[in-house]
Design a protein around this nucleic acid. Sequence first.
DNA 1: CGCTGGATTGACTCGGATCAAGTCGAGTGG
DNA 2: CCACTCGACTTGATCCGAGTCAATCCAGCG
Lengths: 240, 240
Amino acid sequence: MGNRFIEKLARCHPLRPAEVDALTAATAHPRSVKPRQDLIREGDRPGPVFVMLDGWAYRYKILPNGTRQILAFLMPGDCCDLHISLLAEMDHSIQTITPSRVAMIDRLAMDNMLDARRGIAKALYIAQLIDEGTMRAWITSMGRRTSMERVAHLMCELYLRARTIGLTTEPTLCLPLSQLLIADSLGMTAVHLNRVLKALRAEGAMTLDRKSLLIGDPSKLVQIAGFDENYLHRRLRVVA
Amino acid sequence: MGNRFIEKLARCHPLRPAEVDALTAATAHPRSVKPRQDLIREGDRPGPVFVMLDGWAYRYKILPNGTRQILAFLMPGDCCDLHISLLAEMDHSIQTITPSRVAMIDRLAMDNMLDARRGIAKALYIAQLIDEGTMRAWITSMGRRTSMERVAHLMCELYLRARTIGLTTEPTLCLPLSQLLIADSLGMTAVHLNRVLKALRAEGAMTLDRKSLLIGDPSKLVQIAGFDENYLHRRLRVVA
DNA sequence: CGCTGGATTGACTCGGATCAAGTCGAGTGG
DNA sequence: CCACTCGACTTGATCCGAGTCAATCCAGCG
């Protein structure tokens, strides 16, 4: 299997061979990272740009009262904080979920690459816009969807993203997320999430067991979620 | 008073005189827009870049069930969707709240300006990163803060943003937001928001009447909100 | 002066949090 | 190979924050 990061960017915007080469070189020496390791913490000065070549991670914040809010899940091919070095400090942390291979691209090298290879800059920009759209969808979910809708919506999102980057072609997806992680991303309790999952299973819409998601009835799940099939598609269409 | 947009960008990143001139020219002919007008709707192809020279607006989505979620408030100086033209369709709508003056910068002109004036590009980029941080704070609020904390947090955010762009220097702020708008931004009911406002008033932390916000006890409000004074400051520090 | 769209208040209900016990499976060490 | 542990998942009982429904109240305005 190739370099998921480059594949993803190429899907955002066509890349010239020279650009692919530059990206290949920049990500040639990934580091192996264990699960549950912080790549960077809130308050740190932004360091290098992280690229998830393999494995899952998540962005999160810890509140004063100790609770955690997960802001995004990062899957293979995703990259973090392209330009966040422009700001003084990280406003959130990033932690690995599974054992991962993470490329760390030096800021300066990245800036030079963005200057010299406009196609890469554009592809990264598009990827970032898509992520912003995802954040808007999360805000919408938290504010105006019931817990069952939220769960269904998140699963639709994750499944679609995973399919787009070629993680699966079947109605099944290997999802290394504990129920606690999912609950903390949806603003609910692990206990309550568990009950919602049970209900979704009972409806036949989807089954989430230990390590994988099975979408039993896609159209039902989409309907429960009120999932706008276009919300990621639209962006993907640009790509196609 | 000058051009709030240019002032804001200059605070993000120092601008050369030529860059200021280019921005002045680009925003020289704003359009007057009435309240409650959509500037652009979900599903539209992105048009020109909108710049709020004066007046307030908000980004929002309408769900299938008819409810509304507000994604962000735009105040004078804010600009919308810098590069969103890279995507095929808007995933949300933008509507004015007050009578506004809105500059509309042609995509092509904007792209040329960004290419030719890197300082402008950088300033806009920084502004966008700050907005992203705000979105992350919203997700956090919706997921893990009580309704009173959420209200207090939003008021802290709005007050700080307003002060930064020079809308006020006192503990008062002219806030043209109805309770329904605020409720729809915080994922709650107007009825419940009303009760929370009453409680905050009773505590002496803040008073929100028809058209203005009065922060009676800043430190108490910050404490209720669990507001990280740095969350916008950090970014502002870069600026200083 | 009555209309209208917000703001306010009360009574009632319910989704989800909280608290508290289990249960199950994968290691680990004796 | 079994006992022990530890983390994650389940389930039940109870409570409370916030939604819902429904009256007012109030100020601006044609």
